[in-house]
Amino acid sequence: MKMRVVGSFVAAAAVAIVLAGPASAQTRAPANGSTPIPRAADGKPDLSGIWITGALQLQIGEEAANAILKADAAAGRPAPPPREPPPYNPAAEARRQAYLARRGIDDPMARCFLSGVPRITTRPLPFQIVQMPGQIIVLYEVHHAFRIIPTDGRPHPDDVDPSFLGDSVARWEGDTLVVDVIGFNEKTWLAGVGTIHSDKLHVTERYTRDSYDTIRYDVTMEDPEVFTKPWHQQETFRLRPNERIREYECIENNEDLLRFEKLLQNESLVKQPESR
């Protein structure tokens, strides 16, 4: 009986939100009630906090992950759009298919290489955003990595050295933080097995705190050498107020390299060995 009363309340709340119609980011009712989104001294949304995204089940367990998704459904929160396949040109797609045929054995991530942008964001470990005047720091648990993102209007430096995470600068467009990232090396995958890119990769990330509990993350990847058009993805970040960032030293006991070597010695265990 009690469940039914609660259920009715949730349904009524969902209807109320639907009836309220489209709302701006500032007025949209957050899932946990009416807590307004926090703002920094300059009036911009404050993105600070510890967040998780991607595979929630791996990070907080199946029960807690399902509770979040049920709360989304009860609040009428739309699910992210289906993932777009990467719009690779034929040559790049052929390379991706070869990596898929090898079941991801070549994944730089499995070798403990630092993930790039946006993959480092969707790795299933939390990250902390620290927003301060003139810059935003993102501290990623995975790889114990960080990004320092200037927000003071400075351009990219003129001596960018290609790197795993590239070089980031940001600006605000209304209440959305727009991060421009260039200067990547070619040693990372973007979002899953075989999602290669060139050093011409240009990533644009958009962070919008659309409720107290969530940030909508829209990312666009452009790369004239591998894509026929920009590749978009959208994720939802979930605030984890009682969390803390712990250490994650990937290379500590990475046995995968030896196991991959063993697999590759037996050609029958890989569908389509690739000459290297």
Binding site: G54, A55, L56, Q57, L58, A65, N66, L69, K70, D72, A73, G76, R77, P78, A79, P80, P82, R83, R102, R103, G104, I105, D107, M109, A110, T122, P124, A191, G192, V193, C250, D256, R259, F260, L263
Partner: peptide
């Protein structure tokens, strides 16, 4: 529908450190 879609989407990014199928 949103709940079911979110569950399905969740499975699209389950890779932790390496592809499950690799090993």
């Amino acid at each position: 529908i949103a709940f079911v879609a979110a569950l399905l989407l969740g499975t699209a990014s389950l890779v932790a450190h390496h592809s499950f199928a690799a090993e």
